[in-house]
Simulated assay, not measured.
Amino acid sequence: MSTPSRLKAPLILVLSLVLLCAGVAVLVGVFGLLVTVLGKL
């Protein structure tokens, strides 16, 4: 671990991509749940 700065940028990029995908998945799940709930009304 002599060059932590060289590993930090890709790590932050990967983490932000994972968080973005998780946020999109949560939004899609909530939207789908709302559609199913409103569809049964």
Results as ranks from 00 to 15, higher is better:
P10S: 05
C21A: 11
G32R: 09
L38N: 11
T3G: 14
G29H: 03
L33I: 10
A9W: 01
L20Q: 08
F31S: 09
L41A: 09
G39V: 05
A25Y: 04
L17F: 00
V30R: 04
S5C: 13
G32W: 05
L34P: 00
A9N: 02
A25K: 04
V35S: 15
L7E: 12
R6S: 10
L19Q: 03
G29V: 00
G23L: 05
T3Q: 15
L38V: 08
S2Y: 02
V18S: 04
G32M: 12
K40H: 10
S2I: 02
K40E: 13
P4W: 01
L19G: 07
A22R: 11
P10N: 03
G23D: 01
T36A: 15
V30W: 02
K8Q: 15
V26C: 08
V28I: 11
L13M: 07
L34Y: 04
L20E: 07
C21D: 06
V18D: 00
L7F: 13
V30H: 01
V28S: 14
P4Q: 05
G23W: 01
K8I: 11
L17D: 00
V35D: 15
C21S: 09
S2F: 01
V37S: 04
R6E: 12
L19N: 04
L20M: 11
V37P: 00
S2N: 08
L7V: 11
V24T: 07
L41G: 09
V35E: 15
R6L: 10
S2L: 06
P10I: 03
L13S: 03
L17M: 05
L38T: 07
L41S: 07
L11A: 14
V26L: 09
V18L: 07
L41M: 08
L19C: 11
L27W: 08
L7H: 10
V26S: 10
L33C: 11
A25P: 02
T3L: 13
V18F: 02
L38W: 07
V30F: 03
M1A: 14
S16N: 01
A25N: 05
G32Y: 06
A9H: 01
S16L: 14
V26D: 10
G29T: 04
V35P: 03
V26I: 02
L7S: 14
L38R: 12
F31H: 08
V14M: 09
P4N: 06
V14Q: 09
A22I: 10
I12G: 00
V28H: 12
R6K: 10
L38E: 09
T36F: 14
L41C: 06
K8R: 15
L34M: 09
T36W: 14
G23E: 01
L27K: 06
T36Y: 14
S5G: 13
L20C: 11
G39Y: 05
S5T: 12
V14W: 03
A22T: 10
G23Y: 02
L17W: 00
V37C: 05
L33Y: 13
L13C: 06
L27Y: 08
V37D: 04
C21R: 08
L33R: 10
